[in-house]
Amino acid sequence: MTSLNTDALVAVVAFAGALLLVFGLLYRMAARSVARGELSPEGVMILRWALVGYLAIFAVLAVTSFLS
């Protein structure tokens, strides 16, 4: 019988929330740099892929809170 492990889920959501907050701020900074012509669009593209990678890791960790 599996049930939701709230403590673990809260921890993972806190990690992911902090990550999204930091990435959101950095993304805004990067988008402004692209608009000013200082940064190549590749920089923003890598930022998007990095976010996808982190979200994948945290999604797997979030799944574990339903397995304990």
Partner: peptide, 24 residues
């Protein structure tokens, strides 16, 4: 440890990337 990781380590790493992606 988490505050240091997400508040300093991670943003610094991303800023290094963004700086490397700049023309100068």
């Amino acid at each position: 440890l988490v505050a240091q990781g997400f508040g300093v380590f991670l943003p610094n790493g991303v800023r290094i990337f963004l700086e490397l992606a700049k023309a100068k």
